[in-house]
Write a protein that binds this DNA or RNA. Structure first.
Lengths: 127, 127
DNA sequence: ACAAGTGTATTAATCGATTAATACAAACCA
DNA sequence: TGGTTTGTATTAATCGATTAATACACTTGT
C-alpha cells in the first residue's frame, strides 16, 4: 500500500486509480477486505473524507461493496474485475493514439518508439 | 484556425497545445506571422489576456518571437521547431508506456492494440 | 498629428472543485 | 453494557489557478 501522490490530480482520483491498478494486476482478490476509510486515511496521511470519497465512487462503480458497516470488500463480480483492466488499457490507448494522430506520426514510428521505451526500463515492476 | 476546447484543461494550455501541433505538422512555416493577441481572442472567443498568456509562454519557450510591437512570428530556429515534434511525441509515449506498465500489459498486446486503434479511424486527418 | 493597431504589465475578481469539520447510526467485541 | 470501530451524511472552508479588467507604451500608416 504505497502511493506517491502528484499534485496535479486530486487525491481521491489518484486513490481510485491506485485501487484500479491493484485490481487490474490481480493484487486484490475478489471478495478481499480492504482497509477502512479511517485506516486508509492514516496510512496515506490523507483526510478521512477524501478516503470516503474515493470509496464512495468505487462503490458506485461496483468495484467494492459494503455490507452493513463492516469493512468494505473488493467485488466478486468477475465481469467487473475484468472490465477494470480492459478499461484502463483502452483509456491509455485512446489517449495515446489521439495524441500521435494529431501530429501525424506514422504508425510504424509510433510502434517502434513504444517498443523501445517499454523495453528500456525492464527490471522488476515499478509503477 | 479551428479549436475545440474541452473544459478539463485551462484554455491557455489548449491554445499552446494547438500551436505546437500546427508547428509539429508543418502547418506553420518558420518566420510566419501569427494572429495578434486581440485577433486570436476574437476568433476563438476568448479573453485577450488568455491569448496573451499563451503567447507569452510560447515566447519564453522560444516558439515565437516578437520584434518591437509588430505581430509575433513563428521562430526560424529549426532546432526548436524540430524539438517541438519530438517532445510532443516523447511526452505521449512516456505517458502511455507508464500507464500500461503499471498494469503489467505485455508489450505485444500493447503494440497490437495501438496498431488496430490507429488504423481503425483512417480517413483524412481529424485531430 | 491622429487614429488604430500592436505588445506588455499590474492588479483584481472569479470560480469551482477539493478538502475538511462535524455529527450521526449501526455493529461488534471484550 | 460501554467503548471502539465501522460506514454515512451534511455542511462549510479553503485554496489556488485561471480568467478578466484596465491602463500604458510604442509603431505604423494615412
Amino acid at each position: 500500500m504505497n502511493v506517491t501522490f502528484n499534485k496535479r490530480d486530486p487525491v481521491y482520483v489518484q486513490v481510485i486509480r491506485h485501487f484500479k491498478e491493484q485490481i487490474a494486476t490481480g493484487t486484490f482478490e475478489p471478495g478481499q477486505e480492504i482497509p477502512s476509510r479511517r485506516e486508509l486515511a492514516n496510512r496515506l496521511k490523507i483526510n478521512p473524507n477524501t478516503a470516503q470519497r474515493a470509496y464512495k465512487e468505487m462503490e458506485e462503480a461496483g468495484l467494492i461493496y459494503t455490507e452493513r458497516n463492516l469493512p468494505s470488500k473488493i467485488t466478486k463480480d468477475e465481469k467487473i474485475l475484468q472490465s477494470v483492466r480492459k478499461e484502463l488499457i483502452m483509456e491509455a490507448v485512446d489517449n495515446f493514439v489521439h495524441s500521435v494522430r494529431s501530429i501525424n506520426v506514422p504508425v510504424e514510428e509510433v510502434l517502434t518508439l513504444v517498443k523501445e521505451k517499454y523495453e528500456s526500463g525492464r527490471e522488476g515492476d515499478e509503477a
